[in-house]
Simulated assay, not measured.
Amino acid sequence: MTVHDIRAFNRFYTNAIGALDYSRHLYAPYTLTESRVLYELAHSPRTDAADLRTELSLDAGYLSRILNKFEQDGLIERTASHRDTRRRHVTLTDRGRETAALLAERANESVSALLATVPSTDRPRLSQALRTVREILSDGRPPRREDVVLREPGPGDLGWIVQRNAALYAAEYGFNADYEGLVAKIVADFAVDHDPHLERVWIAELDGRPVGCVMCVRDEAPGTARLRLLVVEPDARGLGIGDRLVTAVIDFAREAGYREVVLWTNDILGAARRIYQRHGFALVAEKPHRSFGKDLTGQDWRLDLHRARGGDE
């Protein structure tokens, strides 16, 4: 392996994905670096300039010029940190989220077009090759938040949701097979009959494998969405995956025209409840019950999307 080998691969890959073909307007009207900053902001809603500078290894002056441009375009808002007035929080506006989503959609379409040329029998080999490159060049570095992607479910993913929910809740909380039956019914109902404009599933993927999931489905109450089956693999926790999955549900529910998001959980799920609280959910009711072989306290939580829009999610 030589420097020439790596540079040759870089030239090949940039041509393959069209990164140098500005006529395609993949990132227009923003540069690749600006689009990368937008991506980071979209997936880290409570970051600041110092975090961005460290995460992306950008020059402070260069990043400042990018953020100034974003602010002039109405894509971001900057506020002083409550903990350190020298630091400035950077958050996307509604327009900023829409722009980031558009750029992500264009990038996904570009890569999907590239993958369409790869035979399905070669895709596992390609995926393994990409993982190998990342593992070798990361030199043992632990995974970062940016390594996680949220995507729609593919073949087998709905079955994975059932299997991993059942296995994790059995291992961590001692739930019996009744819980697996409940999850299987929820997933089967979604698979058989769902409205893609009002209901959706997200899979969190890390290094080519699913490590988390969540569902947004219609509730019986008009104008109400229900968040269901949030789970994150133990070895992927600490990367903000739960926060991103809940954010995805909230953003989708708001865009779909729902007035509120509700969920049911149990008081023993402390980490999940803290995520819900951070996003503005309020506890509205709780009741003891015997389910899944355990004595539990069920909780109903609710998020008013109209009130949350003006607050800090």
Rank of each mutant, 00 (worst) to 15 (best):
G311R: 15
E172S: 14
G212K: 01
A60R: 11
V217S: 11
D157A: 01
G181Q: 12
N68W: 00
A204Q: 05
L114G: 00
L227I: 05
V232C: 04
S120K: 12
T14C: 05
L182I: 07
Y169C: 02
Y62L: 14
E313M: 10
I268S: 06
T117H: 06
E40Q: 15
A19R: 08
D59P: 09
R151E: 13
P153D: 05
H82A: 03
V37M: 07
E260L: 01
R237I: 07
A271W: 00
R145S: 15
A256K: 10
S127F: 14
A248C: 08
T121Y: 13
E233H: 06
G242W: 00
R226S: 12
R11I: 01
V149A: 11
R123T: 14
A107C: 00
G240A: 05
A167V: 02
E77I: 07
L230M: 12
Y62E: 15
N15I: 04
G154T: 13
T247P: 01
R95P: 08
L130Y: 04
R125I: 09
L303I: 02
V162L: 02
T93C: 07
D300H: 11
A60Q: 08
D243F: 01
R307L: 10
E40N: 11
T121H: 14
E109C: 00
T224P: 11
Q299N: 10
A28N: 07
M1Y: 05
G240F: 06
D94E: 15
H43I: 11
A184T: 02
G212I: 00
E146W: 07
P124G: 13
G242D: 04
R164E: 05
M215P: 03
S291K: 15
L32D: 02
L158K: 09
E109A: 05
H43S: 14
L126V: 14
W264N: 14
R145D: 12
P222H: 04
G238K: 08
I136E: 00
T224Q: 11
T2L: 01
E233L: 09
E313R: 14
D84A: 08
G154A: 09
V201C: 07
Y173V: 03
P210G: 08
L206G: 07
H289E: 13
L102W: 10
V111D: 01
T99Y: 05
A42L: 07
R125P: 02
P234E: 05
N176G: 12
L158P: 05
L102Y: 05
R302M: 08
I66L: 12
L137N: 07
L63R: 06
A100N: 08
A101C: 07
Y27C: 08
L56M: 14
N108A: 09
L52P: 03
G208P: 12
D243I: 04
A253R: 02
L56G: 06
L137I: 02
G174H: 09
S64P: 08
V284E: 13
T33G: 08
H89D: 03
R78H: 01
V183E: 05
N68Y: 02
E98A: 15
P222T: 08
V133F: 03
T2M: 02
R274D: 02
I66C: 12
E77C: 10
S127A: 15
H289Y: 03
S110K: 12
R83I: 03
E71V: 01
T47L: 04
I250R: 04
A282G: 10
Y13F: 13
H4C: 01
V149I: 11
L263Y: 06
D147Q: 13
T14V: 04
N266C: 05
K287I: 02
